[in-house]
C-alpha cells in the first residue's frame, strides 16, 4: 500500500485558520459567557452584601453597647426609657420555640420518612408526597394564623394557664411546617442506601423493622442528621409564626406556656414601629440580625458538609 499527501495544505490552512468571522464569533461567545458568569456571581455579591450591611449597622451599635453587655445582660429593653441590651431573652425565646418545633418535627418527620421509604405501597406514597409538598408550600403567615386562632384556643382547653401568646403553639405549628423538610431530606438519604444492603439483612432473616432501624437508618444517618440540622436552622430563622403567635415580650424563660419574643419577631416589631433609622434603637435589629445570620450560617454549613460527604460515599 502506498500513501501520499495531496499538495492542498496551503489552501486548507487558509480555510481552517481562524479568520475575522471566527474572531467575531469568539468575541460574541466570550461576551455571552461573561454575562452568564456575572449572573452567577450575583449570588456571591448577595452574600457579601448581607455581611456588609449587617456589619456596617451592627459595628456602630457595638461601639455604644459593649459585646459583654450584649452577651451577658439578662434584659432586652432597647425601646424603653431604661435601656438594656442583653440578647439573652431573645435568644432564649428563639431556642425555646425552635426546641418545641424540633421536638415535634424530628420524630414525626423521621418516622414518616422511614414509613415512606421502607413500608409505604406506591399508592400511599403517591398521596402522601404531594400533601407534604403542599404543606411545605403554605406561606408562613398562614401558619401564624393557624397557631394563633386554632392551635392556641385548642391547647387552652387542655392547658388552662396558657397565655394567649405563647411559645408552645408557635413552636408546635412551626414543627408542623418543618415536618416536610425533615421527612423529604431524610427520605432522600434513606433512598440513597443501596438495596443490596437491605437484601443482605433480609437474607439473614431480619424483619422489616430490623432492616429499617438497624440497616437503613444507620446507613443513612449522616443525611438524616443533616436534615435535623437544616430543620433547626429553619426554625431559628422562621419569622411570621412567632411574630404572630409567640408574643412580643422578651423575657428570659424556658416555660413554653408564656409569651416570649424571638430574634426574628423583634426585628418585625421594630420594622413595624416608628423607630427612626440611624438611631441606636434601630441598629439593634442589625445586631440581632447578625447573630441570627451567624447561627443559621453555621448550621447550614455543617449540614451542607455532611450532605456532600454522604453523596460521595454512595456515588
Amino acid at each position: 500500500m502506498e500513501l501520499t499527501t495531496r499538495p492542498v495544505a496551503l489552501i486548507t490552512r487558509a480555510r481552517l485558520q481562524r479568520g475575522i468571522a471566527a474572531q467575531w464569533r469568539e468575541w460574541g461567545e466570550l461576551a455571552i459567557q461573561s454575562l452568564l458568569f456575572f449572573a452567577a456571581m450575583i449570588s456571591v455579591f448577595t452574600t457579601i452584601g448581607i455581611v456588609i450591611v449587617l456589619l456596617v449597622e451592627a459595628l456602630p451599635f457595638f461601639q455604644q453597647v459593649s459585646l459583654v453587655e450584649f452577651l451577658t445582660d439578662t434584659q432586652w429593653t432597647p425601646l424603653f426609657a431604661q435601656k438594656h441590651f442583653g440578647i439573652a431573652p431573645l435568644l432564649a425565646g428563639t431556642l425555646l420555640t425552635s426546641a418545641v418545633a424540633l421536638a415535634l418535627a424530628i420524630p414525626v418527620g423521621l418516622l414518616s420518612a422511614i414509613y415512606l421509604s421502607e413500608y409505604a405501597p406506591a399508592r400511599v406514597r403517591a398521596i402522601i408526597k404531594p400533601i407534604l409538598e403542599i404543606l411545605a408550600g403554605i406561606p408562613t403567615v398562614v401558619y401564624g394564623y393557624f397557631a394563633l386562632l386554632f392551635v392556641t384556643p385548642l391547647l387552652k382547653r387542655v392547658i388552662p394557664n396558657l397565655e394567649t401568646f405563647n411559645a408552645l403553639s408557635a413552636g408546635l405549628t412551626m414543627g408542623i411546617m418543618i415536618i416536610p423538610l425533615v421527612s423529604s431530606l431524610s427520605e432522600d438519604a434513606l433512598y440513597a442506601v443501596p438495596n443490596s444492603l437491605r437484601e443482605a439483612a433480609y437474607a439473614l432473616g431480619a424483619t422489616r423493622l430490623e432492616v429499617a432501624l438497624r440497616v437503613a437508618v444507620p446507613a443513612a444517618l449522616s443525611g438524616i442528621v443533616a436534615s435535623f440540622i437544616l430543620a433547626a436552622s429553619r426554625a431559628i430563622g422562621e419569622t411570621m409564626i412567632v411574630a404572630i403567635a409567640a408574643g412580643q415580650r422578651p423575657i428570659l424563660t424556658l416555660d413554653p406556656r408564656r409569651a416570649i419574643e424571638t430574634m426574628t419577631a423583634y426585628i418585625v416589631q421594630v420594622s413595624l414601629g416608628d423607630t427612626p433609622h440611624g438611631t441606636l434603637e434601630f441598629r439593634t435589629i442589625f445586631a440581632v440580625g447578625l447573630v441570627l445570620f451567624l447561627f443559621t450560617l453555621a448550621l447550614n454549613m455543617i449540614a451542607i458538609r455532611i450532605i456532600q460527604r454522604y453523596r460521595e460515599v454512595y456515588r
Binding site: 499527501t5 495531496r6 492542498v8 495544505a9 486548507t12 490552512r13 481552517l16 485558520q17 481562524r18
Partner: peptide, 13 residues
C-alpha cells in the same frame, strides 16, 4: 493533520 494541516494548533478554527 487534516489535509496536511495540524488541527491542534491555536490558530485553527
Amino acid at each position: 493533520l487534516f489535509e496536511g494541516v495540524n488541527i491542534y494548533t491555536p490558530d485553527v478554527d
